Simulated scan of single mutants.
Amino acid sequence: MEDTNIELILLDLDGTLLNLESEVSATNKKVIKKLMQQGYKVAIATGRHYKEAKRVTSDIDNLVYITTNGSYVEDAAGQEIFSATLEMDSLLSVIDILEKESNLEYALFTTEEVLVKDQHQFLKRIVNSVQSPFKNLPSEEKEKIIVNNELGKPLQTETDLKDYVCDKESAIHKILILGEVEELPRINDEIAANVGTGIEVTSSGPDNLEINAADISKGRALDLLTQYLEIPLEQTIAFGDSANDLELLETAQTAVAMKNSELEELKEKADIIAPTNVNDGVAKVLTELLDIKIKY
């Protein structure tokens, strides 16, 4: 199963590279570092904010970052490769729709921070989300995580987000919407009907929607990155588990879906089904595919 043509490895974070504690396991870390020592290039490809992505991978040097679903890309030296923000008209139209909904939280992602109306309520949504590793903790433990922001999110509170982005002319890379699973399809339909073609809507889980500028995806970012690095797409492999990984897996030469993915469409596109994220699926596929000798 050895494939010596691969030069660039792309890794989603949540549900893929990260375990249930939102950490890169020792095994995954060891394999990634070994591959980079041998000359492979590794890029994180995530819907997370750039600072969050850097934080959870801080002890792995020389990574490339595709963040906020491909709207911001940075090379291993920290140089910006690509940045795409939402048009102001589209952004304000989405905010108007969201402000009419009382049973959701949303956040606006800039390059530097995540803007929210109520930090406590936003973090509460995350801690109790379908995919959260903390959702079954006792309420007092969850409250501690929320109050201390132990999730490490770079949050800035602004009570009126619409006024804020208008006054500051803020460049917004992504809108993250957190809501009830049964309500989000209706909200998605309303956004599609009223905002038009200036946005791209995807998801990284059943209780969220993620909105970027039109034509933005991890797949497009991969295409741009290979041109920048002068690596053919034919020499790429990508790992993912969610809807926002679909175009990434479609674009890469070798597509790897995680066994823990609940998205059958993603698995159907995959060339390989990796073991789950809690069983070091990334490391196991890469060590076999690239014939890496690792002592665990």
Rank of each mutant, 00 (worst) to 15 (best):
L249S: 09
D215T: 04
N244F: 10
N208E: 05
T254C: 13
E230A: 11
I231Q: 06
T197N: 05
L209C: 09
Y228L: 00
N244T: 02
V195Y: 11
L249K: 14
P206I: 09
N208W: 01
D241P: 11
A252W: 06
R186G: 04
V201I: 15
N208D: 05
E247I: 02
E230Y: 00
E210W: 08
T202F: 11
V201Y: 05
T226L: 01
R220T: 15
P185N: 12
D245Q: 11
E210I: 01
T226V: 14
L225Q: 08
L184P: 13
I187E: 07
D223S: 04
E230N: 15
G205T: 11
E250L: 11
Q235S: 10
I237T: 01
L246E: 12
I237Q: 07
I237D: 05
A193D: 12
D215L: 00
L184D: 06
A252N: 07
A243N: 05
L222Y: 11
S203T: 13
I191Q: 02
L225N: 00
I231C: 02
N194L: 04
Q227R: 08
L248K: 10
T251A: 14
S217G: 02
N244Q: 00
N188T: 07
I199Y: 14
S204A: 07
E210V: 05
A193S: 13
E230F: 00
R186T: 04
A255T: 02
G198C: 03
P185T: 05
E234L: 09
L209I: 10
E190Q: 13
N208S: 07
E200R: 06
Q227L: 02
P232A: 05
I199S: 14
E190P: 07
L184M: 08
I191W: 09
A213E: 07
S217H: 06
V256W: 06
E200H: 15
E234S: 12
T202L: 03
G198I: 09
I187A: 07
R186H: 07
A255N: 03
I216S: 03
T251K: 12
G205I: 00
T254A: 01
A243E: 14
E247Q: 13
L184R: 14
T251V: 10
V195L: 04
P206D: 02
L184W: 02
L248E: 12
A238G: 10
S217Y: 10
S204K: 03
R220M: 14
L222H: 09
L233P: 05
G196I: 06
E200G: 08
Q253A: 12
A214V: 13
K218C: 03
A221K: 04
L222D: 06
R220L: 04
L225V: 10
G219K: 11
P232I: 00
E182T: 08
G205L: 00
Y228M: 01
